[in-house]
Write a protein that binds this DNA or RNA. Sequence first.
DNA 1: GCCCAAAAGCTAACGCCATTAGCCTACGGC
DNA 2: GCCGTAGGCTAATGGCGTTAGCTTTTGGGC
Lengths: 187, 187
Amino acid sequence: MAVRPRLTTAKVVDAALELVDEHGVEALTLAAVAARTGVATPSLYKHVASLGELKGHVGLRVMEEMTARFTDAVVGRAGDDAVRALMHAYRAYVQEHPKRYLAVPMDPLHDELQREAGLKFMELVLATLRSYGLEGSDAIHATRRLRVIVHGFASIESSGGFGLPEGLDDTYDQLVRMYLDDLRGQS
Amino acid sequence: MAVRPRLTTAKVVDAALELVDEHGVEALTLAAVAARTGVATPSLYKHVASLGELKGHVGLRVMEEMTARFTDAVVGRAGDDAVRALMHAYRAYVQEHPKRYLAVPMDPLHDELQREAGLKFMELVLATLRSYGLEGSDAIHATRRLRVIVHGFASIESSGGFGLPEGLDDTYDQLVRMYLDDLRGQS
DNA sequence: GCCCAAAAGCTAACGCCATTAGCCTACGGC
DNA sequence: GCCGTAGGCTAATGGCGTTAGCTTTTGGGC
């Protein structure tokens, strides 16, 4: 409330995200952020507690961005249609921002800063599965299975882990179908 | 061939693996390896080209260890039995060495040093699926689906990404069954 | 319209790390 | 018994995160 904030925490995170997009999360350094924002390195500590905290903010922003997009993709849909939309939106985001995806932590629930965003994402998945009428632990298991598939594929693809990219769309379609068949439940 | 090799590349990698097991891959530092092996930091350069190369060796060792164990788990089995054994052996390894698993790169095929080990692992999966009579790209897709599930689950579990560990065995069993049902093929 | 508290920048300095250069030493093959 | 070299060492450099402490700007209260 006091002075003329040339820089804000949000702008610092913006610059950090640009760096991550361009050169990967391992190139996210306070010195690089300072250079990009036209400020001396120690000045960043007026907006951010440490490099670790900055990385936390970056992960948070990405999670929020993802949840927002996936919500858009899912609204107005139900059942298989909604699940398909969610899974394809997930992959599409990661294809657009592969390096950014590698910056989001896999255990947001254990981080004070990111816990809320993680829960929000989980609730979105739960809501997407609502029309299947799963109860209690069945809903938890179904959510976990979805996450395993979606994150497994995304993390491998975003780090170029599939030998050659040929037929990857087909592989993903098969995974989506496999998940839906399983959800529908055949014993 | 010349002197009394107090240290060898293999021993350096051993020390690195201990550090990874104890404190995670982010704590793998040449200074720490030097301290553990009782040597001055620059001396390590006689056995390893750089920290990056050492990390490559660490990843390679883990991959080889995994492939060896999974081979043991699969020999003498076929069909669903073999697939189940492979998938459970994978999870068991990662449960035993969670930090170690986080040290293996997801794109071994793009690394000169690790390419061969990556191919070897892929061949093991292909061989495990042999009895299903998959041809050409069908075999590739099935291999990818398996990897997505197994790595997706392992990477989340090993970083504590599942909120609470309750019922994780059930979740994994469901994933294995889902994969087998899908393999068997029901349209 | 002036004063001042504090916000937001700065420079200097420290410690840790990877990496390079250059030296010393103890072997083992001839 | 000599000597080349493998394998250790110390010293030095540069990049990084982080802390301490100074300076500057400015908006709100009188």
